[in-house]
């Protein structure tokens, strides 16, 4: 399983993660963003102007165990080995950003929205983009569970 003691592992070193997905369109700037901070704070923001125009912003402190599990998910995905050079550029349809600090590595990837695995397969870097695609889904799933259990809201 995840290596416990080295810099890229699940336990050691500092950790920061931020994910953003959004676009600007008919309903204004609609986006979802969350971040895990080094002190354990999880922040979650979701702005959808469609139907109701309320911005949801939640924050809660996580225990080190939860942050460690987040690191484990990131670490196992091996996203830090990838590069966004050949990923589709953000466009009118939307933009995704994934920023992670783990150990002594700092990535800040941007790409367009990915509608389906078809977009991944037809891209110039299907292997790297697939890793990104699944990691983002796993992270969202983790965050939605945490936020919905703690605040009893439906995150989406």
């Amino acid at each position: 399983m995840a290596e416990e003691e080295n810099g890229g592992g699940a336990a050691a070193g500092e950790f920061y993660l931020r994910y953003y997905v959004g676009h600007k369109g008919k309903f204004g700037h609609e986006f979802l963003e969350f971040e895990f901070r080094p002190d354990g704070k999880l922040r979650y923001a979701n702005n959808s102007n469609y139907k109701n125009d309320t911005m949801i912003r939640k924050e809660v402190f996580l225990t080190p165990s939860v942050l460690k599990e987040c690191r484990r998910i990131v670490s196992d995905s091996e996203i830090m080995k990838e590069d966004d050079n050949n990923w589709p550029e953000p466009d009118r349809v939307g933009r995704q950003e994934l920023e992670i600090v783990m150990g002594n590595e700092h990535i800040s990837f941007t790409t367009s929205k990915i509608g389906s695995l078809m977009d991944v397969q037809t891209s110039k870097d299907p292997e790297g983009l697939r890793i990104f695609y699944y990691l983002v889904q796993d992270l969202k799933c983790f965050v939605f569970s945490l936020i919905s259990l703690h605040f009893k809201i439906k995150p989406i």
Binding site: D84, V101, H106, S108, F109
Partner: peptide, 20 residues
Amino acid sequence: IPKLKSAITSSAPKKTKGRG
């Protein structure tokens, strides 16, 4: 970019990667 870096660490510079 050092502000994020400096906010969470003062140790050796990080290897950075990505269009961001």
